[in-house]
Amino acid sequence: MITLGCDVGSIFSKAVLMKDGEILSKKVTGTTGEMEKDIGELVNSMLSDTGISQNEIDSCVSTGQGKDRVPMSSKKEDETQCIARAASSLTPDARFIINIGGQSVRSILLGGDGEIIDFATNDKCAAGSGRFLEIAAKALELDVGGVDKAAGEAKKPVDISSQCAVFAESEVITHVNEGKSVADIMAGVCKGVAKTITSQARGIGTGEAFTITGGVGKINCMVQLICKNLGWDFVEFPEDPQFAGAIGAALLGGEKA
């Protein structure tokens, strides 16, 4: 069975093409105002890469903020469900998931069968989100890919006291004006964001083995900080963590088609 999972996030749109639970192709693009077009292009390029035609696709499950904007979607699923589904397949040892996307932070507690027992979401405020990191990185003239390298060179991370991204941006600029190094400021920002994320996780988790998904899961220093803060056993997500939602969507499509 061939299934497609589309995860239209606030910053990136992801698509995964699967055959009997195996990933055939996965692609990501920046989300624009024209989400229908973004996803259409992603899917077309995956189809031409794999030589599969559109009518061979048995099901298409869409998720993410823009899940209503995927024309070929046969079913819409909640992000939390999709992420939980992906983790229960790919990281069966993890009973807890921290998903950090562009515009949301989620903590999900799973039961022994991968069912969701409890979860917490912040998608109302940029604190702890990828956007927060992006804004700080931009103020430091770094791209998101440069965050890890910069933070890795830090000697004495600064203290960022604001949880609000707008106020934190001002703090970053103040530190720049005071002559602090980009590395020390970026590391301080990461520390602050990690603290926000782990305080949400502690609200529902009690030391379960956990995995990290979502785009921010690709930033090494963030993963390390979260692991250090929590001290729980970490199970690495074996695929690109940014695709967790899309993988889960494709897996759910396989079950319910």
Binding site: S10, Q103, K124, C125, A126, R131, F132, C164, A165
Partner: peptide, 13 residues
């Protein structure tokens, strides 16, 4: 949106 950052995206849209 209540968050200034998210409102920025909303207004841009």
């Amino acid at each position: 949106n209540r968050c200034s950052i998210y409102s920025e995206t909303e207004v841009l849209h």
